[in-house]
């Protein structure tokens, strides 16, 4: 097996590996701070690791000119499930749990309906982003009503939610109208504009997740100092 196609691919599309680089950095941050991570952060770390594995398979498929679009859909499914798991740990009330499960159920139904091997499941990915926004807003509501977080700006889950909401808001329309944005490769270079938008927001989300792992370490240390 030659490595030549990989190098060729990297040289041809270097900017498309930017999100993967930040994904790797976020995983590194997660692993370095693994013992400080709470359950929700560990779910997010697992999500990143699986996303990275999918990204490697995508790279392999792209290098050998094979269809890898279905992997976007699989990645979305993994993101959604792990995201729901992370928020389910964090949002403890029954009402919140119902919203989380309902959101996941709606997504799964749309995913089953919209999934295609040869295309990006735009509606499923759009719904995923909408559900992500709902989870993030639910979490904001939770922290505003519970008032248990002393300093929000160093609270890891706040930044995860902020990152998720920005990432989801930035890419929602791109996927909802996937035929107009990413569907036509010959439309005066607009495909590259939208795919760059998607990559940029993905990279941003991975950076935020990486930062949130470090913040979690800080929160852990602070809690330890107050309880000793």
């Amino acid at each position: 097996m030659s490595v030549h196609p990989y190098i060729k691919l990297i040289l041809k599309y270097p900017d498309s590996f930017l999100p993967d680089l930040f994904l790797l950095l976020a995983i590194g941050a997660g692993l370095v701070n693994y013992f400080f991570l709470d359950k929700s952060s560990r779910w997010l770390l697992r999500m990143l690791i699986l996303s990275f594995i999918i990204s490697l398979i995508q790279l392999h498929d792209a290098a050998f000119r094979q269809n890898n679009l279905y992997l976007h859909n699989i990645n979305s499914l993994i993101e959604m499930c792990f995201f729901a798991a992370a928020y389910q740990v964090e949002l403890k009330s029954k009402q919140n749990l119902t919203v989380i499960i309902s959101g996941l159920a709606v997504y799964l139904l749309v995913f089953l309906f919209d999934f295609k091997w040869g295309n990006i499941a735009g509606i499923a990915l759009g719904v995923e982003r909408m559900v992500m926004i709902i989870y993030a807003l639910l979490y904001f509501h939770y922290i505003l009503t519970k008032m248990q977080v002393q300093n929000l700006l160093i609270h890891s889950m706040f930044w995860v939610s902020a990152g998720a909401i920005v990432h989801a808001a930035g890419t929602l329309f791109v996927f909802l109208f996937v035929k107009a944005t990413l569907g036509d490769l010959s439309s005066n270079g607009s495909y590259y504009l939208y795919i760059t938008i998607v990559r940029t927001f993905s990279a941003f989300f991975y950076i935020v997740l990486g930062v949130s792992f470090w913040l979690r370490r800080r929160e852990f240390r602070l809690a330890e100092r107050f309880t000793v």
Binding site: M147, A169, L172
Partner: peptide, 28 residues
């Protein structure tokens, strides 16, 4: 429309984040 919609959604998202951070700090 997609570009405008995305921009509006982004601005709203950022506004919500800032509002939550500000309001929570104020409450605290």
């Amino acid at each position: 429309y997609i570009a405008v919609g995305t921009a509006v959604l982004l601005v709203m998202a950022i506004f919500i984040i800032v509002f939550v951070a500000y309001y929570q700090q104020k409450q605290i």
